[in-house]
Design a protein around this nucleic acid. Structure first.
Lengths: 343, 343
DNA sequence: TATATTTGAGCAATCGATTGCATATTTAAA
DNA sequence: TTTAAATATGCAATCGATTGCTCAAATATA
């Protein structure tokens, strides 16, 4: 076993077989111009030498790195990490690797990260936009370079780009309708002042459901915040302090609804008997609380898979414009005790 | 603006300035053999041409890809995604990118993924071992190739490798001690039949605390399972069916303790008054349940940062053996209502 | 002034795989 | 038997940056 220092290259294989590296390269890539016999020999020798292709060299020459850049606000939020998981599933099957990159909801960092991913020569980018992003030039630039881009969940319509979202409007409409059907008439809504698509759509769904059921939209019942758990607490306290009647809370965020639940419990207000609660996102903890909270499942892993599939189609169609695809997944209302009379 | 098709390269800069690419390369890398004046000119021209270094080309020639492979059982578990976040934080500062890869607790996939990461020419690997892995040749191979490897949380002592863990023993000991101090004497323990380090150490901590307080270790109280939520339910039902007395449950997993809480509630057994509960991991939901659950914080983000720092030191010390570093982080017992008498 | 040293930059090979364009060998068609 | 077409492989340039070595010019030392 003449194990040379470094790894075996196509040149080593070529030398052993008395053929050229080009032939080896073609044989390994199953090029039809190489005879079956030669292919067999090459494959055998490759195995024998424990040859491992150098993706870097291949990337340099071919211009394809087989790397996908994934940009998310933060990797350790269940929704995003689940989407990443879905993406990685698909990418893996196709022998692509996923580079992950976080914006922390910071616009500058988002711009930098897009830049950095391009520098790393990813073959394309999959991204979810940060809450504070209002200018989309950095994404437009990606498109202008002909690099595949797919946005998911947090999207923008200011640029013409492939995207995968769930039907936030429908999810919110269904939830609100469900609350109404449970007899609620004074439904508080937690939303964000940042008018990114998801919160805008959820608000619209909430309002339309009320309208359809002839219930007045009371601005007093709409609380704007950043919708973390603490914000949810604050919003709930605000509502309670106002001493206006309310019989339900529909929050655009599971975290905020969690805060509301805590505050209600502290005030000895019984959920769901006195106030019903619904969130959005189906974060794992919503099923663990007492009572478990009704929420909207965002189909995170499927979203990751569909996003990846959309991405790869875009990659295949390579440059041809007008291939942008917009997919809207159906969310699922998960009804739990927090919106139902207890037995 | 003579914007050529492709991106600018060092050759374009060289041509414009009537110098060679080598000089440009050195100037950009701040090589002392290049005059300040030339450097200034190169930098200026680079900016003017909007030059972006091609990391792929650089990687090929230099053998350093500036890519780190991170291998975790699953990306969408809060603990792992938080560690990944910590790693990415540090890597980012140093201009490295993180490739993420999931084993799904599957041994074969773990082996394949290590292989795939090496093929992608990562400069090193950070990994947490899958539950079912009992052979570590794939990691040994990485070490043999002189490629930096750091294990975190789920480690092995069968190979000599850098590692970052928390003191699982101490965390379990402290938790058990805390339960004993709350008056518990019959403490159920949920553990895993897989004797990977973390569960083994936690079991040991549990047992030692009991011994130190002269409490008999009753094998009847030790339930083995895969420790997901459902398993926790089953374990709890088992214990209740046995009709043996117990006054606390200390689970090596937050998910399993969650299951226990549900079953206890269904049996109208009051937590913490009748039975106290403690978990391990400080998954976000443990603070959201009713009552909130005492658990052990695993310091996930710090763990990610320390792991990354350990990794980069290893990278710097480049090949020199005997640089393996073993860090043990202190866990933190988070005491919540589930182990305290209610007011 | 002659020689040694330092400084700044160029030359050309290299990393490993890919690919357009020959070329040689067979096989098929005329 | 010629010529045309198909098949299989080789040649050499290329992707873009890095780097050991060489060399010229400038400066310092004797």
């Amino acid at each position: 076993m003449s194990m040379k220092k470094g790894k075996a290259t196509i040149h080593d294989i070529a030398e052993k077989l008395n053929i050229t590296a080009s032939t080896v390269s073609r044989a390994l890539n199953d090029n039809p111009r190489i005879s079956e016999n030669t292919k067999k020999l090459v494959l055998k020798m490759a195995k024998q030498l424990n040859y491992q292709p150098n993706h870097i060299a291949s990337a340099l020459r071919s211009g394809k790195s087989k790397l996908i850049g994934v940009l998310v606000p933060t990797a350790n939020r269940n929704f995003f990490s689940s989407v990443v998981r879905g993406i990685e599933d698909i990418a893996n099957e196709l022998d692509y690797k996923v580079i992950i990159s976080q914006s922390y909801e910071d616009y500058d960092k988002e711009v930098q990260n897009v830049e950095a991913l391009l520098n790393a020569r990813v073959d394309g980018i999959i991204a979810s936009i940060g809450k504070n992003t209002e200018n989309f030039d950095h994404f437009q630039k990606v498109l202008d370079k002909g690099i595949p881009l797919v946005l998911f969940d947090r999207i923008t319509n200011e640029i013409d780009v492939s995207q995968v979202i769930i039907d936030d409007y429908q999810g919110a409409y269904d939830t609100t309708k469900h609350l109404i059907e449970q007899g609620c008439k004074r439904i508080v809504h937690f939303t964000s002042p940042k008018k990114i698509n998801i919160y805008r759509e959820r608000l619209r769904g909430y309002e339309d459901a009320l309208k359809d059921f002839k219930i007045e939209i009371d601005p007093e019942l709409i609380e704007e915040s950043n919708m973390q758990l603490e914000d949810g607490r604050t919003s709930m306290e605000n509502i309670i302090k106002k001493e206006i009647p309310f019989d339900a809370v529909f929050s655009s965020s599971d975290y905020a609804v969690m805060g509301a639940l805590q505050v209600l419990r502290e005030h000895k207000i019984i959920v769901p008997n006195q106030v019903k609660l619904a969130g959005f996102g189906n974060e794992p903890f919503t099923s663990f609380t007492f009572p478990p909270i009704t929420t909207v499942d965002q189909k995170s892993i499927p979203m990751g898979r569909v996003t990846a599939e959309t991405f790869f189609e875009l990659l295949k169609s390579d440059g041809k414009k007008g291939n942008n695809q917009k997919t809207v997944l159906k969310p699922e209302l998960i009804i739990r005790e927090s919106t139902q009379k207890r037995n």
